[in-house]
Amino acid sequence: MAAPLWLTAAERTIFDALPAPLQDGWELKEETLAFTDTAERRTARLSLVRLHDQKLLALRDKVQKATSPEDVASLLAEIDLRDVTEGDLAELFFALGPDALTRLITPLLREAKTDGDLDDLASLLTIRHSLLESFSSQA
């Protein structure tokens, strides 16, 4: 079963403009939580990242040795996340934050053409919703 689509009001408008057949069958939920990011908040999140994946660490080393943007671009093109642990992925999404995800989600939603595209989006929306809940909860 596909995950629900947690859409903000603005995203719902974009979804409603998609072709009707593409809209069919999706469970829609309204994303009412919000988070305003700041440079200070991003710095704080980045400072908390703990990675263990050897591939990511190796990539970091390669990037450190890269001498040109072209080298970095080719390294990025070789990225393979298949073996990255779920824990490390969670770390990265936390560091990226809900605001950055929103900026990624909007164009992806606008360009969605298949159920597969929306299924990919559902994953990002699930992660964003959990992040928003995490920042909204009081400790």
Binding site: A3, V49, L56, L59, R60, I79, L81, R82, L124
Partner: peptide
């Protein structure tokens, strides 16, 4: 399920993947 999708992102969504890796770096 979400993580499995994300792991398949590099080909389909290089932008998301690149940002994640850049975050790591």
């Amino acid at each position: 399920r979400a993580w499995e999708k994300v792991k398949a992102f590099p080909r389909k969504h290089p932008i998301v993947t690149a940002l994640l890796v850049i975050t790591a770096l």
